[in-house]
Design a protein around this nucleic acid. Structure first.
Length: 886
DNA sequence: GGTTTCACG
DNA sequence: ACGTACGTGAAACCC
């Protein structure tokens, strides 16, 4: 069976351009739209296996539509040059793919596509039409499936007439009427002002077409009636403009579009020119780096032996780039391979590789001493990981004065490829192979021969030596020098110490809790099967959806991309309809505790010590927060009592000691008060008021005594919204109120917290002007999408601009407190140990005799970590377990 | 490997 | 008009 794929070229190029960050190759050519286009083509070829293929483009500027309506597509921002310069590249790319392209003066791509799909319908040929434009839905038919890109370009929603009916309640032809009524700002099609999708759909469900809606205008009510009557002509014209012309005089001979595969050679050279490294590798087009006549930089990669160790370590000097290689994601369990250092004597690049066995042997002593000598300065890529790996081998690492990973993260915390090979590419330095290239991955993992290994690791150390001065200068330029040297670099060491110490778990207690859960789960499961009348896998959202919405016929109102949604929000609304739903909710919460917190945590306990050692990631979160892995100890349950009990198994590691926890009170709103300088908010904290009650008083305009629990709850939600970068929609969802009411709340809030409104406006403007926002300590986050024309992307960036300085400054502050606290414990010779950080909370284990001291010192250090214009405050408590330290 | 759900701040 | 609250990690399904 033949299958023709038609791509709406301009539409897909646009979507790709706005969906992807503005990539460019080393000669400054922008390539993001070409890249997106390419990945889409490859995916379609692989998944759809078309026998025929074509891409249609708009030709020129003036089409017949302009003759009828001169404003057509007026007011549309003109295509940015970064995109228009990519069209010739896309056309060249299509030649390499050997995919026919069509454009016709005076017609849009839509019309070409309309004509071809009509021909396909008549012939009964199968067509997949790919576009980013929902207008295309009007072309769907028995033979024509329309794929509309969703969120970026890698995913599409497929529509045939049945699905359009299901989603909109319309036939494909009525899509034209829909646009006639609601118009389309991006094409400057007016429609009827004030009529959006909701209203338009309602009218079409009742009357069917624009003509019928106009004919029945008299039966409409109030304002709507006026509007429809007043803009009747506009609606008719809009419908006409939205109608795709399907009679373009053109060749529709099928064989012209036959697709028989791409020209590998042309494609490979195209990818090289565009520097699509990942695609070159994926397509097996050979090495991604083109060596321009110049040989790979020479490196003398020496393997150190027990005989020459003494002599070679003498050459290392007081300063070197070093690298610690270990295999495995979790540094507490990774298998160490060895250490390598790099030197340059003015002539020769040399690296020295010390395999793990040698490092640990007697002969390894000089290197071990050098590594732990604070006066020997080291530059690394990922000190934190190296320190952990070495520590588990009994080797201390001291004297790190630069960390390339940490620096690259600060320079761009959203960079997704923070690998050494990724960064050398990004900063235009001689590249290194990726670990995947050298080691392979998954089942294909192989340790290379000693020589190749030593060369690869040596090149890593060389790359570190090369990239360090570049990153140092960049940090200076972006004023993150102090943030790096005074906060992040010392923190790396503090984190490593906390993690190595670990936290003790009462494994027996946890197992007992698991047994209890198992019997409860068993009972619930039986009840669910009885109530549902059938046994099924409750953990499978697919099976659960079928039971609830098909077998039991409960109302489904929310969908996921694969089927019915069965999340807690849905189930809570269904609970009154059927007894089984409450049981399922209960089952879900207990099953989560069992699998993630009982079984998951037990898997991470070291049997020798009874401890878990989390790994805090310092270079993941875009806001500057830490994250925690293997296990994640930042999401241990607390909100529900049943889950909170998990905290009872987190215990001190020494008899007679206590757990002590201290958390910041309202740190984000205090930070907001400081950076916005809002008088009212500042005053509230200076007076040490309950901030949610205060907000309720101001928003509802009542006395403190008149604030009831519900008002406080709503005010609390507003405060959360403010911190997240408020929108009326978000607040309405959270409070389950109408958008109008949510908007009213927000307006009320801003009326009394005018400084906050001013901050929100200014920070978005600043982000547009600078392209980034910063925290109090100059941590930076770039927001390229702040200028996007796509509403969703832009709005997201705007909320991020509001939220990141708040969340990020709070992260700065607790990090400061951690570094200061670690110093303080050492200075004062305290035995207490810092164990955990949970964003606004620090957890310690404390010997009894230090309890009084720590209860005083911890909140004092936390509150004093950074001086703001409002006081910071931390609450502290202690007990025999983490549960009791509340 | 992607998707869904849910735990935390 | 558009349609999401900000930041994470882990487990279970299912292809």
């Amino acid at each position: 069976m033949d299958k023709l794929i038609i791509i709406d070229g301009n539409s897909i190029a646009n979507r790709a351009f706005y969906a992807l960050p503005l990539l460019s190759n080393s000669s400054g050519l922008h390539t993001n739209a070409v890249y997106g286009f390419t990945t889409m083509l490859l995916k379609l070829i692989e998944e759809e296996k078309p026998t025929h293929f074509l891409v249609a483009f708009d030709a020129g500027k003036i089409t017949f539509r302009h003759k009828e309506y001169t404003e057509y597509k007026g007011g549309r921002a003109k295509t940015p040059s970064e995109l228009s310069e990519q069209f010739p590249l896309i056309k060249e790319l299509l030649k390499a793919f050997k995919i026919p392209q069509f454009e016709l003066t005076g017609y849009e791509a839509d019309d070409i596509i309309g004509t071809l799909t009509k021909a396909a319908d008549e012939k009964g040929e199968k067509v997949l039409l790919v576009s980013g434009d929902k207008d295309m839905l009007q072309l769907a038919s028995e033979h024509v499936t329309v794929a509309i890109t969703r969120k970026g370009i890698s995913e599409v929603d497929l529509y045939n007439p049945a699905e359009i009916k299901e989603k909109y309640g319309l036939t494909p032809a009525q899509i034209i009427d829909l646009k006639g009524l609601m118009g389309d700002t991006s094409d400057n099609i007016p429609g009827i002002p004030g009529v959006g999708e909701k209203t338009a759909l309602k009218m079409l469900h009742e009357f069917g077409t624009v003509e019928e809606v106009l004919a029945n205008a008299a039966s409409l009510k109030g304002k709507m009636k006026e509007k429809v009557e007043e803009h009747a002509q506009s609606a008719m014209m809009s419908k006409e403009l939205a109608t795709i012309f399907r009679e373009v005089p053109m060749e529709t001979e099928w064989d012209v579009f036959r697709y028989d595969g791409f020209d590998g050679q042309a494609l490979s050279s195209m990818f090289r020119k565009l520097e699509f490294k990942s695609l070159l590798e994926k397509m097996d087009f050979g090495p991604s780096v083109v060596e321009e006549g110049q040989a790979v930089e020479s490196l003398e990669a020496v393997v150190v032996t027990e005989n020459n160790m003494e002599e070679l370590i003498g050459k290392i000097g007081d300063n070197a780039a070093i690298h610690v290689e270990a295999i495995g994601e979790n540094p507490h369990q990774a298998v160490m391979v060895g250490v390598v250092w790099f030197t340059f004597d003015g002539e020769t690049n040399t690296s020295y590789f010390v395999p793990i066995a040698l490092l640990k042997s007697e002969a390894g002593e000089p290197l071990r001493t050098w590594l732990s000598d604070d006066t020997k300065k080291k530059q690394l890529f990922d000190q934190h990981r190296a320190q952990l790996v070495l520590a588990w081998q009994g080797v201390q690492l001291r004297g790190v004065d630069f960390d390339a990973l940490l620096a690259a993260y600060l320079l761009d915390p959203t960079e997704s490829n923070l690998s050494l090979s990724g960064l050398t590419g990004k900063y235009g330095l001689p590249g290194v192979k990726t670990d995947e290239e050298v080691f392979g991955k998954g089942a294909k993992f192989r340790m290379p021969e000693l020589e190749a290994l030593s060369d690869h690791l040596g090149r890593k150390a060389m790359a570190i030596a090369r990239i360090v001065p570049v990153l140092r200068e960049e940090l200076e330029k972006s004023e993150m020098h102090s943030l790096f040297y005074e906060l992040e670099l010392p923190l790396a060491g503090v984190l490593a110490e906390m993690e190595l110490r670990g936290i003790a778990l009462d494994a027996e207690g946890l197992k007992a809790f698991g047994v209890e859960l198992a019997s409860k789960l068993d009972a619930i499961m039986t009840r669910i099967y009885n109530l549902a009348g059938v046994e099924f896998n409750i953990n499978s959202p697919k099976q659960l959806g079928e039971i609830l919405f098909e077998k039991l016929g409960l109302p489904a109102w929310k969908k996921t991309k694969t089927g019915y949604s069965t999340d807690a929000e849905v189930l809570e609304r269904l609970a009154p309809h059927h007894e089984v739903v409450g049981e399922i909710l209960n089952y879900r919460s207990l099953a989560k505790l069992q699998s993630t917190y009982v079984e998951g945590l037990l898997k991470e306990v070291r049997p020798e010590t009874g401890k878990v050692h989390t790994y805090y990631r310092q270079t993941i979160a875009a806001t500057g927060r830490l994250s925690s892995q293997f296990p994640n100890l930042q999401n241990i349950p607390i909100r529900l009592e049943e889950g909170r009990k998990i905290r009872k198994v987190f215990v001190p590691s020494e008899p007679g000691w206590y757990m002590l926890a201290a958390d910041y009170s309202q740190i984000e709103l205090r930070v907001l008060a400081h950076i916005s300088q809002d008088d009212n908010l500042k005053e509230a904290f200076l007076q040490n008021m309950d901030i949610h009650t205060k907000t309720a008083m101001d928003v509802f305009g009542v006395e403190e005594s008149a604030v009831d629990a519900n008002m406080r709850r709503q005010a609390k939600a507003v405060n959360f919204g403010i911190v997240y970068g408020i929108s009326d929609y978000g607040l309405s969802q959270n409070l389950d109120i109408t958008r109008r009411d949510a908007a009213q709340f927000i307006e009320q809030y801003f009326a009394v917290f005018q400084g906050v409104r001013k901050y929100m406006d200014e920070i978005v403007k600043d982000a547009r002007r600078d392209g980034y926002v910063t925290t109090l300590l100059q941590r930076r986050r770039y927001l390229p999408e702040i200028t996007a024309s796509n509403f969703n992307l832009r709005s997201f960036a705007e909320r991020t601009a509001m939220n990141t300085p708040i969340q990020g400054t709070a992260a700065d502050i607790i990090k400061l407190a951690m570094v200061q606290m670690a110093d303080r414990l050492k200075q004062d010779g305290l035995k207490s140990r810092m164990l955990l950080q949970v964003h606004d909370e620090l957890v310690f284990e404390v010997p009894e005799e230090e309890l009084e001291t720590m209860r005083r010192v911890v909140p004092e250090v936390m509150a004093g970590a950074l001086k703001l214009d409002v006081p910071l405050s931390a609450d502290v408590d202690f007990g025999l377990t983490w549960y009791d330290a509340k």
